[in-house]
Design a protein around this nucleic acid. Structure first.
Lengths: 301, 301
DNA sequence: CATCAAACATCATTATTTATGATGCCAGAA
DNA sequence: TTCTGGCATCATAAATAATGATGTTTGATG
């Protein structure tokens, strides 16, 4: 029957995003969880604080007043968190991060923008490498992000956090004949020109193996482009169909569409941190793990 | 890894009471629960905020600074709660409460003092009655407190909240010969002059029944006083041994001591609220239930 | 006007968190 | 030294919250 402070933070997020699902995203929760929190809050207050309104929600009169008070709580919480950060002397500094190409080019930029809003003084340097190189550099870098099965040679030097599964999809022009299918088999793809990644790419490795399993023969690789963006551009030009991580399409992409492969091709995505992480890097970990997990579970970019 | 707002409230309570167990009481938790919350808080902050010091704890330097911030959070939470209360127009008003004599004279005063600190404008009127009368008055009063088995005639009109078990004890002068025993049987008491409550008292009812069961004969009642305080004063005067609820001894009582009976005599203590409780009475319920429960479970006044 | 898509609520289940009671330990008082 | 009051730790039990699936409403689209 008492007001839970956590619910207040969710309510502030609701007001600031203007929608329940928006608030859920900003707090790294699912939409039902957020709905539940707000329901509980209103029960404990004893009055409705908002109503559904079109594509979002609108505050009631009471809700407006309530927000003023809730905001004070949220701000003093924020002040306290800043204070706690200062204790560790981590207002400013640098973090060196290695990530595989797919991650560095898709999920990571948006994540780091959010992180930078929260900690403007912390600089993050990203190296875009292939998975093997990421492992090698763990001794010199603070953090690593890979999307491949882990080699057995990692165990001692660093901790591994499993973030979720990355799914490979076929990417093609919006009006491509295959776009009518809801999912696509490798055998189907065989009839069309395909665009492959360069040799050494983890994405290409798994595709070659699965291709062999599915069709009984190695793929005939005619077009091969270095890097994800090169593949996408080739697809836009109508050169063929590409296969990339589900997260690789730029936001706002209007010419291309993706279809899931069948059966699904999944790769574990993991975060690597050295045994003795700096407080600075720990902050980034605390931020990235829930951020990336929520993106991976909901399969949304 | 994030700071939980709830933990902050516990930390503020720690500072204000000066001890872990004190903070636990003020938040109606057990001591291990409070210890755990404070441990988690310090883990998430990454630094110790206090150290054990004699009969309590002492803040570290960081703890002092941290408290300033935590206090701000607690105060804005408090402001928000006041606002929520105003929404229901319950800054002021009256609550009529019926309670059995034992409760009205022992647990309730301290509880209402705490309640009054929180809601100074709310007046609570207590009627001290016997259990049967409490049930009868539920139609006209807002709340009831009894410590007897419930009659079967209550079900429809009001909700019953079980609070815990009340234990009867023998009360005697500090240097009474029986005070050397750690617990006392009814058969032992038979050898001493006893002081009984008046007829109609729920406490006397259960004692008479149990006396018959334990000794095979009804008690010979020589001294009979009206009301708990009369019984206690008689004991102080050396007239005999009394039997009352464990909570009946005034705080700071220096002449008397109590010993548990064997086997234990327990009675359920319950709160009764009418079907449609006023928001005002609901506030009191929300306060009394955890308050009384924690007192009953820990068997402490 | 009918259909579609987006956003929120609800539900049953699972997972996580939290509190509890018992126990052990340490410091200060007798 | 022994005893007492207060805090930490532990295993277990209870309460709470999150999830994924599903149903419902609203605004947009053809």
């Amino acid at each position: 029957m008492t007001i839970h402070p956590d619910h207040l933070l969710s309510f502030v997020a609701l007001v600031q995003t203007g929608s329940v699902s928006g608030a859920a995203q900003s707090r790294f929760l699912t939409q039902p969880a957020m709905s539940n929190q707000l329901k509980r809050l209103q029960e404990s207050v004893g009055m409705p604080l908002y109503r559904r309104k079109g594509r979002g929600v609108q505050l009631t009169g009471v809700g407006e007043d309530f927000y003023i008070h809730a905001l004070k709580v949220q701000q003093s919480m924020q002040a306290l968190n800043s204070f706690a950060d200062e204790l560790h002397g981590l207002q400013a500094g640098r973090i060196y991060l290695s990530a595989s190409q797919t991650i560095a080019g898709s999920l990571l930029p948006a994540a780091l923008v959010s992180f930078h809003q929260r900690y403007p003084q912390i600089e993050v340097f990203v190296d875009s490498l292939n998975s093997q190189q990421v492992f090698e550099r763990m001794e010199h870098h603070d953090l690593g992000l890979v999307e491949s099965p882990l080699p057995s040679s990692v165990p001692e030097c660093c901790t591994v956090v499993h973030l979720g599964e990355d799914k490979l999809v076929a990417v093609m022009p919006k009006h491509h004949p295959l776009a009518v299918s809801s999912s696509i088999t490798l055998a189907q793809l065989d009839a069309y020109p395909l665009i492959w990644r360069e040799q050494g790419s983890g994405t290409r490795d798994i595709l070659e193996r699965e291709w062999l399993k599915a069709t009984g023969k190695p793929p005939r690789i005619q077009l091969c482009m270095g890097g994800v963006s090169a593949v996408l551009e080739s697809v836009r030009q109508g050169l063929g169909i590409g296969m990339v991580s589900q997260f690789c399409l730029p936001t706002g992409e209007s010419m291309l569409t993706t279809r899931p492969l069948h059966p699904q091709l999944l790769r574990p995505m993991s975060l690597l941190q050295p045994s003795h992480t700096s407080p600075l890097a720990k902050k980034l970990v605390d931020f990235l793990v829930p951020y990336l997990k929520s993106r991976l579970y909901s399969n949304l970019p």
